[in-house]
């Protein structure tokens, strides 16, 4: 099962059975402008759904990135340390921020799919 879901806080999550990748949406990166720094979580951090996991900074804004589902941080995207601008150029692929385990797959069904998210950002 591979699927991409979205949150109201503009995170995307790509689920691959046991684990998932998380990042921010292209819409969110455009709102932020040039990303200058990402504060990555520590590997092994347990996070509950809705909890702050990372912080992404542009020159005049700092945005918290929340866990779309509960689980443990398994890996972080180290390449963002040197090139935070990957978030701007490729937010929804190479701009992934962390990889996490899936604690409760039931939480996934509450998230938006692509078309629901597209409608959401138009309304928002």
């Amino acid at each position: 099962m591979k699927e991409i879901k979205y949150t109201k806080d503009h995170e995307w999550i790509k689920i691959d059975d046991e684990y998932a990748y998380v990042g921010i949406t292209d819409f969110a990166q455009k709102q932020l402008g040039d990303v200058v720094f990402i504060q990555l979580p520590e590997i092994g951090t347990d996070c509950t759904i809705g909890e702050e996991v990372a912080v992404i900074e542009s020159v005049k804004a700092a945005s918290e990135i929340y866990a779309p589902i509960s689980g443990q941080v398994l890996e972080v995207n180290e390449s963002l340390n040197d090139s935070p601008d990957i978030i701007n150029s490729d937010a929804e692929n190479n701009g992934w921020i962390w990889k996490m385990s899936v604690k409760d797959s039931g939480q996934i069904s509450d998230l938006m799919d692509k078309s629901a998210y597209s409608n959401f950002i138009i309304e928002d």
Binding site: F37, E57, S58, V59, K60, A61, A62
Partner: peptide, 12 residues
């Protein structure tokens, strides 16, 4: 590095 400061980060 203004994102550390109160006028942007407020309570954090």
């Amino acid at each position: 590095l203004s994102t550390r400061e109160q006028h942007i980060r407020r309570d954090k």
